[in-house]
Amino acid sequence: MTVALFTLGGTIAMAGAGTEQSGPGADQPGGTVVARLTGADLTAAVPGLDIPLDVHDTRAVPSADLTFRQLLDLVEQASRAVRAGARGVVVTQGTDTLEESAFLVDLVWPHPEPFVLTGAMRNPTLAGPDGPANLLAAARVAAADEARDLGALVVLNDEIHAARSVRKAHATSTAAFTSPDTGPLGHVIEGVPRVLTRPPRCTPLTPGPGAPARVALHTVTLDDDGHALTRLGDGDGVRGLVVAGFGVGHVPGELAPVLGGLAERMPVVLASRTGGGSVLRHTYGARGSETDLQRRGLINAGLLDPYKARVLLRLLLTTEGATTKDIAEEFARHA
Rank of each mutant, 00 (worst) to 15 (best):
G235Y: 11
E329A: 15
G191P: 12
A309G: 12
G247I: 11
A137W: 06
D181Q: 03
R201M: 07
V154Q: 06
A64L: 03
A17K: 04
D106Y: 08
T274A: 14
A60G: 05
Y284C: 03
Q70H: 11
R295M: 01
G277M: 09
T95H: 08
V155R: 04
P207S: 07
R69D: 12
R296K: 10
T19N: 02
G88W: 05
R36E: 01
V268I: 02
A26D: 01
L8F: 08
V215M: 01
D73I: 02
A256N: 13
M121E: 02
A144Q: 07
L136M: 11
G277Y: 13
A263I: 01
R281P: 00
L270K: 13
V243Y: 14
L259I: 09
L150T: 11
A60S: 07
G247W: 06
D236P: 14
T118I: 05
L259S: 06
D234Q: 14
T32W: 00
A244S: 15
T7H: 05
P184M: 06
T319W: 00
G85P: 03
G39I: 04
M1I: 14
L136V: 12
A301W: 05
A175S: 15
P180R: 07
L229D: 03
L37W: 01
L196F: 10
H187G: 02
G9V: 04
G25D: 00
T19L: 02
T97P: 01
G23L: 02
M14V: 00
T43G: 11
V75S: 06
V220G: 11
L232M: 12
T283Q: 07
F68Q: 05
P184W: 03
R59S: 09
T219A: 11
A137T: 12
H161Q: 13
P306A: 08
L71M: 14
A142T: 11
G85M: 15
R140H: 10
G30C: 01
T7I: 09
D96T: 14
A322M: 08
T32L: 00
S165L: 04
L74K: 06
A322R: 13
A322V: 09
P306C: 11
A17H: 01
G208L: 07
G191Q: 10
G226W: 02
G30M: 00
M1S: 15
R148A: 03
V154S: 07
A263Y: 09
P193Y: 10
G210I: 01
L317G: 12
D223Q: 12
A271S: 15
T43E: 00
T324I: 15
Q93K: 06
A256S: 12
V141R: 11
T230H: 12
Q294M: 08
V108E: 01
A163C: 03
V166Y: 04
V91N: 05
